[in-house]
């Protein structure tokens, strides 16, 4: 217990010697009288006087201590909760700046849809950021990391439980338009490597948010497969399907020629769990994010940060109590003298 005490304002402790003042200042009573030698020795009175001096010394000591603001420093405690380690891997390519279907797209005529989408549909990347921000805020037990990708992977926020930092990473993704190229293969390889050298604590997820696919070469496929297997990472792909873009479940041999479908089929061959969510409108996207939240609720060991605990209030209360006793004793003494 004692080992874990720190002071916010330790310099005040230099005033601690003041607490001895009442012990030095004896003979308060005597000084007012010309001669007290003839009075019988009052042992009880002396004892009470000494007790009062000790009490006021304690009161001074308590106030000095309170000024130094002692407390227990911030600490970490191991806790088991429910949650996951989630790496948000967000596409920052230019196409993410395009729009999705507006919410009321079902009421629009086939002719209007394209035009309306271009004019007033929500921007994909922005809709995704808003929902991911809310998702993160709702899941305080999870640890999040944020990465963007275009031609390279931009690992922004390493795994943290600090919601504010994760949000700052997500916010940064919305400053200005995206970059021109995308290389989802490279991004996945370097993202899965971020789980390396981390204790396996429960469940690991890469939440890929992107609007396009890629036909990966065999080396890349092998590297991705090996990485996911070794790190035991599940992959969730929220595919932001643009207007007129291919459906992931497009059947037949022809599908293999479409990058999005090819990527989806490759993901299905991964040894670890994989789920795809196809989102065409903000509602689809919200439902997908909601579903991801339901999926991953495994027990997770994590260290919880216990904030610094300040002891000053208790000490001030003690000082107050001492002062109250001194006041009461003063009244009692006065009455005794009268």
């Amino acid at each position: 217990m004692i080992a874990g005490v720190d002071f916010l304002r330790p310099e005040w402790l230099a005033l601690m010697p003041l607490a001895t003042l009442p012990l030095w200042a004896r003979g308060t009573e005597a000084s007012g009288y010309p001669d007290v030698g003839w009075l019988p020795e009052d042992r009880l009175g002396r004892l009470v006087g000494l007790a009062l001096r000790v009490l006021s010394a304690l009161a001074i000591a308590a106030v000095v201590l309170a000024l130094a603001a002692p407390g227990r420093p911030q600490s970490l405690a191991l806790r088991t909760g429910r949650g996951a380690e989630v790496l948000l891997l967000i596409d920052r390519s230019r196409s993410m700046d395009e729009r999705m279907l507006p919410s009321d797209w079902r009421e629009l005529s086939a002719y209007d849809i394209r035009h309306q989408t271009q004019s007033r549909g929500p921007v994909k990347s922005q809709a995704a950021r808003t929902l991911l921000g809310e998702f993160v805020a709702r899941r305080p037990d999870d640890r999040f990391a944020v990465s963007f990708f275009s031609a390279s992977a931009l690992h922004v926020v390493p795994f943290t439980q600090h919601d504010e930092v994760v949000q700052a990473g997500i916010t940064a993704g919305g400053v200005h338009r995206g970059l021109s190229e995308t290389d989802v293969g490279r991004a996945l390889i370097s993202s899965v490597a971020r789980f390396e050298n981390r204790a396996y604590t429960g469940s690991r997820i890469i939440l890929l948010v992107s609007d396009g696919g890629a036909r990966l070469d065999e080396d890349t496929r092998l590297a991705i497969r090996a990485g996911f297997e070794r790190q035991r990472v599940a992959l969730y792909w929220i595919y932001l399907k643009g207007f007129g873009r291919p459906d992931l479940e497009q059947a037949g041999e022809a599908g293999e020629a479409i990058p999005e479908v090819a990527l989806h089929r490759f993901f299905e061959t991964l040894p670890t769990p994989y789920r795809a969510y196809q989102a065409e409108s903000p509602e689809d996207l919200a439902a997908a994010v909601e579903d991801v939240g339901r999926q991953q609720n495994h027990p997770l060991d994590f260290e919880e940060r216990i904030p610094r605990q300040d002891y000053s209030r208790g000490i001030i209360a003690a000082a107050l109590l001492l002062v109250a006793i001194l006041l009461a004793a003063g009244r009692w003494q006065l009455r005794g003298l009268r």
């Binding site: 926020v157 504010e164 930092v165 700052a168 990473g169 993704g173 400053v175 970059l179």
Partner: peptide, 15 residues
């Protein structure tokens, strides 16, 4: 390219 929006240097120094 912005990577991280400004955060408090004391609260989030480690991050």
């Amino acid at each position: 390219l912005t990577l991280l929006a400004p955060v408090d240097v004391c609260d989030h120094y480690g991050d």
